[in-house]
Nucleic acid binder design. Structure first.
Length: 435
RNA sequence: GGUCCUGUGGUGUAGCGGCCUAACAUGUCUCCCUGUCACGGAGAAGACCGCCGGUUCGAAUCCGGUCAGGACCGCCA
């Protein structure tokens, strides 16, 4: 008997089939017992009406999470979950488990606290709700890739072991590289720009590493960056339009192919407006000052509280979960940032807030060799460590720009989990290196 | 790095100087139950209240230290 997946059960009504997976729960009602089996895709119910069919489980003393194989006849039944269930079954216990799991997985919601979940992530993530959250992460990557391929972008992979800290200042993890010091890449920024010189339009899905000792619900030290970079742009608005289309594509992919996971989490996807509302950094500060009385106008950046306020403002003013903040001050942006030709103290850059959290950073980059030399000098940085990067511009680069979406932040904001650590399988934070 | 908060059976919580010989829910075990879907009902086992020290006639409860965790800020995706 070939195994089918639990999700394919409705297509086999009337047939004899075999399911394999984990015993999720066993509800004994006396003369009738309901068994729920979970495989990698979903769950299915089997009905046991004789003590004989139950015998293999009781004989093996099999608790939930035991691996079992269930063979039986698929019957349509309105009272069954998903409308069908297995009857007249034979159970084979493949791997009996007689110790209760550290976290009960058979309940609708997980009762364990964050630390317990993370300590037992390999088990806790089996829970259907955790699994749905993590699968949405896969769906986001799928939608991201599909949207960009559709727009003639080429997927690239750039080195994660690098010789120098790319963007001055931020902390990097050092490692021993055959006796030399190397670093884990904190961003594919330089490489994706170099690759614009090769493919014009590139994107990358890959890990980045931040050695910053931050300890908040929206920071982890290793995360997945969804990076995009493209040539021949007008200015940062060209990039923002691509970002809008990509977000739309991601949501469309989730709606189309991840409906089951959305249903498990009872989630409604945010609408991506045709035109995402946008506010200039300076206007945003003035607005906050006028509306809240908090004068943040001399600050070079928006504080998390400001971002939360702006997110709520965008929601009530435009009915949008998304808000672009453009034109961050040059002094807060990395040296390769392109200034606003009309107001050189401000940059042609943007952040995208999603429900009040910074989700994306992007903008236009410098593209002339001379501008880079001047920018490095202005930033007080030596030219020598940047020599390979600068060679790109020395031999001709078009105007270009791009952005980076924080994958886990998108998952967090989309699903509403209380911490970014719950938006990834095995988070790395200040204290956690295992599992 | 700064500020604040929390550690109680496997899990999640209540109790916050004597009613604590530590309560409730869930999980585990035994029994009853033929349509459950967080099944229901009856019973049982399971915790020296994170650890060390102090205050007190008396500490899960107050204080100090220590270890572990969490929230916010700085910084960022």
């Amino acid at each position: 008997m070939t195994r089918i997946f639990t999700t394919d059960l409705p297509a086999h009504v009337g047939e004899q089939v075999s399911l394999a997976g984990w015993l999720q729960s066993l509800r004994r009602m006396g003369g009738i017992t309901f068994l729920v089996l979970r495989d990698g895709w979903g769950t299915a119910q089997a009905v046991i009406e004789t003590e004989d069919s139950l015998q293999p489980l009781t004989a093996a003393n099999a608790l939930p999470e035991s691996l079992i194989r269930v063979t039986g006849t698929v019957q349509a039944n309105a009272a069954a979950p998903n409308g069908c269930e297995l009857h007249h079954i034979a159970i084979e216990v493949c791997v009996p488990i007689s110790e209760a799991a550290p976290i009960p997985l058979g309940k609708r919601t997980i009762t364990a606290g964050q630390n317990t979940i993370l300590d037992h992530a390999m088990i806790a993530n089996r829970h259907v709700s955790r699994r749905a959250t993590l699968r949405l992460s896969a769906g986001i990557m799928e939608g991201f890739r599909a949207s960009l391929r559709e727009r003639d972008f080429t997927e690239v992979q750039t080195p994660k072991i690098v010789a120098a800290a790319t963007e001055g200042g931020a902390n990097v993890f050092a490692l021993d590289y055959f006796g030399r010091t190397a670093y884990l890449a904190q961003s594919p920024q330089f490489y994706k720009q170099m690759m614009v010189g090769i493919f014009e339009r590139v994107f990358e899905v890959g890990p980045v590493f931040r050695a910053e000792p931050h300890d908040t619900t929206r920071h982890i030290n290793e995360y997945v960056s969804l990076d995009v970079e493209m040539g021949f742009i007008e200015d940062h608005h060209t990039v923002m339009a691509v970002l809008r289309a990509v977000l739309h594509g991601i949501m469309a992919t989730l709606q189309r192919s991840y409906a089951a996971d959305l249903a498990v989490l009872e989630l409604a996807l945010p609408a991506v407006p045709t035109e995402i509302p946008s506010i200039h950094f300076a206007e945003a500060q003035t607005l906050i000052w006028r509306e809240t009385g908090q004068d943040v106008r001399s600050e070079p950046d928006l504080a998390p509280a400001d971002e939360r306020w702006l997110g709520a403002w965008a929601q009530r003013t435009f009915g949008s979960d998304f808000l672009f903040v453009t034109g961050y001050p040059m002094r807060k942006r990395p040296f390769y940032t392109h200034p606003d030709p009309a107001r050189p103290a401000f940059s042609n850059s943007f952040d995208l807030l999603f429900r009040g959290v910074e989700l994306v950073t992007g903008g236009q980059r410098l593209h002339r060799y001379g501008d880079y030399l001047a920018a490095l000098e202005h930033a007080g940085l030596a030219i020598e460590p940047f020599a390979p990067y600068l060679e790109t511009f020395r031999y001709g680069m078009p105007s270009h720009g791009g952005f980076a979406i924080g994958l886990e932040r998108l998952v967090m904001q989309l699903t509403g989990v209380s911490s970014i650590k719950l938006a990834t399988t095995f988070p790395r934070d200040l204290h956690r290196l295992t599992p």
